[in-house]
Simulated scan of single mutants.
Amino acid sequence: MRFQFLLFLFCVFSVSEMNAKALRVVTTTEDIASIARFIGKDRVEVTALVRGAQDPHYIQVRPSDMIKVSRADLLVIVGLGLDGWILPVIDGARNPGVRIGARGFLDASSGIELLEVPTGKVDRSLGDVHPQGNPHYWLDPSNGKIIAKNIMESLSLVQPSEREFFKENFEEFSKKLDQAIIHWKEELAFFKGKQVITYHTTWSYFLKAFGANARNYVEIRAGVPASPKHLQELISQIKKEKIDLIITEPYFDIRLPEKIAASSQARLRVLAPSVGAFAQIKDYFDLFEYNIQELLRL
């Protein structure tokens, strides 16, 4: 009996020690967090600072965010200015291991083929323009492999002894994603060549991945609400070009796209821009499954 009790204590303490050694990974968004969990599995504890239903452009920094980053072994950001609010968090955390340029800092956009990189002068008169390019790159599922590879390499730098473990998980994730992409493209074959209206430039990578195109936007410029004139011009364009789909995000006011849809006879779909945007979207694969099922209802 004593032996069994000692064995039980040994197992408890062994598990506790293993959990204590798990790398603390902090990400800015749920999408990056989901991929990090696939790569790190039980060797990581992953925390996302932004919930999937929030607009990641505009986040109110909390003291608790700084505490989380202060304890992190690895900080992963989307980059390209989407999560610029992380800079004061990094400063406030006072964790030299995750400062920009440190081994424990990763900009997940590294290696991404960027869309909509502006040319010429960029200033606030153009709206919420990202000078380095459109930051919503995770919505092209093929970019998920690039994000995963970046995370694998950074985890391996922080914890070299687990390099092979992270590499195996990356290969498993990549294989699963490759198979899913084939299936998703088959399901959305009808979507190829489709012209749509989107609220914001969120969907550029998604549309390109599945062969569709955004003809215009509800916003008059990125981050700038539609004027009455723009609204009327948009409705006229939809009717003239026989555009039958408007896509918006759950964190924008639904009333304006609903009004446009009602006036133009186009259909409106509220798609999920991130993991966790809706309760049933638990991981990166669920994100595409949800959006594709919504589009299949057209």
Results as ranks from 00 to 15, higher is better:
Arg103Cys: 12
Tyr137Thr: 06
Phe105Asn: 11
Tyr137Val: 07
Arg124Met: 11
Asp107Arg: 00
Glu116Met: 11
Gly104Pro: 05
Pro135Phe: 09
Gly97Asp: 15
Phe105Trp: 03
Asp140Ile: 04
Arg103Pro: 13
Arg94Gly: 11
Leu139Asn: 13
Trp138Thr: 04
Asp128Ser: 11
Asp107Pro: 08
Gly111Ser: 07
Ser142Ala: 15
Leu139Trp: 10
Gln132Tyr: 14
Gln132Arg: 14
Gly101Thr: 03
Val129Gly: 04
Arg103Leu: 15
Asp123Trp: 05
Phe105Cys: 05
Glu116Ile: 00
Phe105Thr: 06
Ile112Tyr: 05
Asp123His: 06
Ala93Asn: 07
Gly127Lys: 01
Arg99Ser: 15
Val122Asp: 04
Thr119Met: 08
Pro96Cys: 08
Val122Leu: 08
Pro118Phe: 09
Asn134Ala: 10
Leu126Glu: 03
Asn95Phe: 08
Asp123Thr: 02
Asp128Gly: 10
Gly127Glu: 01
Gly97Ile: 01
Leu115Asp: 04
Gly133Arg: 00
Pro141Glu: 10
Arg103Glu: 15
Glu113Asn: 12
Asn95Ile: 05
Ser142Trp: 12
Pro118Met: 09
Asp107Phe: 06
Glu116Arg: 09
Gly101Cys: 02
Pro141Thr: 09
Ala102Cys: 10
Asp123Pro: 07
His130Asp: 09
Ile112Met: 05
Gly120Ala: 07
Asn134Lys: 03
